[in-house]
Structures are given as structure tokens and as C-alpha cells.
């Protein structure tokens, strides 16, 4: 556990000195919160029920893009950075186990993604009260809460798994970022479907999305862990 913590803090220290990651982690949530607020602000005055639902669902979707996209940059750099600096071998020469290394790298990406998503949601609720005077009932209901606190972490986990897999084969951080973003798109399809629906996101839809994400994450993480062995890293990684 101690070694996992050491890896996580090292990753964060490096990420804080990386402008690409830092700016992404600050601006992406702000843009998403801004866009969600616009949707809710416009939606509250619309009398047509279907249109209002679509706008609220779209606002929710922004909070699902965040946990999927934020960890990509951190995870991609954490692997590509090691490759570029040739620092992986000295790291592997320490007594750290393969699973500790994998968990350290994964948590270093997942924790900020979830933290920023939840913090952004808090900011969104706060500004919503300031702007509208209340939180619309369709926004803070059980499906929304299930999405924010249940689906977001799963999306981050899936996203990190995909990124670690992609990064093991990539030699360039930008390429890893782009391919990983492409790789996580399938996980966002159900969310895109929500926004086209005229019915509000409900617990059944959230449940289906959750089960699909758990299955996809297990598959992706299984392969990512397999790729993350010393032998593979030193002899197969590019």
C-alpha cells in the first residue's frame, strides 16, 4: 500500500509540472460546468417537456465526459513519460510488484478524474442555485446521483484501462492521447443515446450502462494488467 501511495504522489508531482495535463485538468471541467449551466438555465424556462428533458440530459452528459477524458492525459503521460525518460527500468528494478505499479499508475489518474468531476458537480449545483434560485428537480434526482457517483468512477476506470493499454504500444504522448480518446468513445455511446431520448434518464438506463461498463472495464483491465508485467514491459513494449 505504501509503495502505491509513493507512485501516486510521484505521478501527481510530475503532472503538476506538465502544462498540458494541468491546463486540461483546469479548463475541461470549467468548460463542461459552463456548458451544463447553459443547458439547465435554458431548459428551466422551456415549456415543451421533450426539449427540456433533452437539454437536462445533455447537461448530465457533460459530467460523464469529464471522468472519461481527464484521466486519459494523466495516464498517457505517466506511461509515455516513463518511456521518453527511459525511467521505467530503474523503477522496475525496485522491489515494487507489478500490481502495485499498475495500481499506482491507475489510481494516480482515476482519483483526480473522479475528484474533479465531483468538485465540478458541486460547483455546478452551487452556481445553479445562484443563477436559478433553486436546483431543478430533474437535475438532482436518484438517476443523476447514480450517474455522478456510480457511473463516473466506472468510466474513469475504463478510460484508464484503455489508455494504459494504448500507451504500452505508443511512443508519443499525443498519439496515445488521441488513440485512447478514440478507444473510450464506445463507453459514451449510451450517453449520446440519452440525449436523443425524450424521456429523462432513469435508474434502469443507468443500471444498464453500469453493467456494460463493469463488463467492459473488467475485460480492458484484464488485458492491461497482463501487459503490465516486468517481462512484457522490458521485452515487448515499444
Amino acid at each position: 500500500m505504501q509503495r502505491i501511495k509513493v507512485i501516486v504522489f510521484k505521478e501527481w508531482r510530475e503532472s503538476l509540472r506538465n502544462k498540458m495535463i494541468l491546463l486540461g485538468a483546469i479548463f475541461l471541467p470549467l468548460v463542461m460546468v459552463g456548458a451544463s449551466l447553459v443547458m439547465v438555465y435554458q431548459g428551466r424556462a422551456i415549456e415543451v417537456p421533450g426539449a427540456q428533458v433533452a437539454l437536462f440530459n445533455t447537461a448530465l452528459m457533460y459530467f460523464l465526459i469529464m471522468p472519461a477524458i481527464i484521466p486519459v492525459a494523466i495516464a498517457a503521460y505517466s506511461i509515455i513519460g516513463e518511456k521518453e525518460q527511459a525511467s521505467m527500468e530503474p523503477l522496475l528494478a525496485t522491489p515494487i510488484s507489478d500490481s502495485e505499479l499498475f495500481l499506482g499508475k491507475a489510481l494516480a489518474s482515476v482519483i483526480p478524474a473522479i475528484g474533479l468531476t465531483w468538485a465540478s458537480f458541486g460547483l455546478f449545483l452551487g452556481v445553479c442555485i445562484l443563477l436559478v434560485g433553486e436546483i431543478p428537480p430533474h437535475v438532482l434526482n436518484p438517476p443523476w446521483i447514480a450517474v455522478i457517483f456510480g457511473i463516473s468512477p466506472l468510466l474513469s476506470l475504463f478510460s484508464v484501462g484503455v489508455t494504459l493499454l494504448v500507451s504500452s504500444r505508443a511512443t508519443d504522448a499525443r498519439a496515445a492521447y488521441q488513440f485512447s480518446t478514440f478507444g473510450i468513445l464506445p463507453a459514451l455511446i449510451p450517453l449520446i443515446v440519452y440525449t436523443s431520448k425524450k424521456t429523462l434518464v432513469n435508474l434502469w438506463l443507468v443500471g444498464v450502462e453500469g453493467v456494460l461498463l463493469i463488463v467492459a472495464s473488467v475485460i480492458v483491465l484484464y488485458f492491461a494488467i497482463k501487459v503490465f508485467s516486468r517481462e512484457q514491459i522490458l521485452t515487448r513494449w515499444k
Binding site: 510521484k10 508531482r13 510530475e14 509540472r17 506538465n18 513519460g81 525518460q85 527511459a86 525511467s87 521505467m88 527500468e89 530503474p90 523503477l91 528494478a93
Partner: peptide, 15 residues
């Protein structure tokens, strides 16, 4: 129990 100096220093340049 062993220490390894790899062919390239492999330091974290941002640290």
C-alpha cells in the same frame, strides 16, 4: 538487495 544503474540514467526530468 541489488542496485541497478541502467544504460541511460532514466531520471525524472520534471522532478
Amino acid at each position: 538487495r541489488v542496485g541497478v544503474l541502467t544504460e541511460t540514467p532514466g531520471l525524472y526530468k520534471r522532478l
